[in-house]
Design a protein around this nucleic acid. Structure first.
Length: 270
DNA sequence: CGTATTCCCTGCACGC
DNA sequence: TGCGTGCAGGGAATAC
């Protein structure tokens, strides 16, 4: 389940292997992902040089002068740089062969991911309405406070709304709310500026920490075992429903919020 | 407009 | 052992 930290570590791990490389060819084994893979991936990419690899929200952008590949890992996607003779496995949908002799391979069992095309100088429709990056300076408590005025939805749903802020998925929403002492059920429009300042700070802290951890697991990006793990041991709330709160020992509660499994401490989070 | 719900897909953890 | 069932989840699409 790639969340923002996993996407960022993927970007950073790929960069030294793909920057400045020319694409030799593309092999498409299966095109029906979330949406059909754009034809430009096969038709335009070969022969192009990779000028940059960027991240926006949980999307990766691989830039060339002819346009950009826009890729989302969905819930189960992974990108690895491999020697050309590494056998193809189940769900290896796309290979992008590089002039280094290596292959950039996209695997996605559940096919919730996508691989689309963004023309030069344009912004893809999927990226247009996105909110700020949580680690950028324009995202802070004051911003969250203003963006949430009048919103009656639970704060967790608002945090996970990509138009408000990108890249805060189920895991990190749960962890940040726990760290900030805010109940995920609380009406977003009724939370004080002060508490949003704390929440924004916790979001930044936890994401930055996870990116730092991801970086260490991804050092060996070429190995077949390149999948980044989360710091599962270190999660305080996510996936721990029924277990004692790490702070006060009260049993953590679990319920659906916006159709997402949600865990919180009824004592520490108000 | 904001909010709630549904759906896409496969692997895995269960229980019998 | 093997099957069926339910769940997980990002986020667009749809329904209110």
């Amino acid at each position: 389940m790639p969340e923002l930290p996993e996407v960022e570590t993927t970007r950073a791990g790929l960069a030294p292997h793909v920057l400045g490389r020319t694409i030799r060819g593309v092999v498409l084994r299966r095109a029906d992902l979330r949406w059909p893979i754009s034809p430009e991936i096969s038709d335009v990419l070969p022969g192009q040089r990779i000028e940059a690899i960027r991240r926006r929200a949980k999307y990766l952008l691989i830039d060339t002068d002819a346009g950009s590949a826009l890729l989302h890992l969905g819930m189960s996607g992974s990108l690895r740089v491999l020697a050309p003779d590494v056998p193809v496995r189940a769900h290896d949908h796309v290979d992008i062969a590089l002039d280094s002799g290596r292959v950039l391979r996209f695997n996605d069992p559940r096919r919730f991911g996508c691989l689309l095309w963004q023309a030069p100088g344009t912004t893809h429709e999927l990226l247009r309405a996105l909110g700020p990056e949580p680690l950028d300076d324009d995202f802070d408590g004051e911003y969250l406070f203003r963006a949430s005025r009048g919103r009656r939805a639970p704060v967790k749903s608002v945090l996970m709304d990509q138009r408000i802020v990108v890249g805060v998925g189920n895991i990190y929403a749960a962890e940040a709310l726990f760290a900030a002492g805010i109940s995920p059920l609380r009406e977003a429009g009724r939370i004080s500026r002060e508490r949003y300042v704390r929440l924004a700070a916790e979001i930044k802290r936890i994401l930055a920490y996870a990116i730092g951890r991801g970086g260490t697991t991804l050092r060996d990006f070429i190995s077949p075992d390149g999948a980044p793990g989360y710091f599962e041991q270190e999660l305080s709330a996510y996936g721990r429903g029924g277990q004692p709160c790490p702070t006060c020992g009260t049993a953590l509660r679990q319920a659906l919020v916006g159709q997402r499994a949600t865990v919180w401490c009824p004592r520490c989070q108000r």
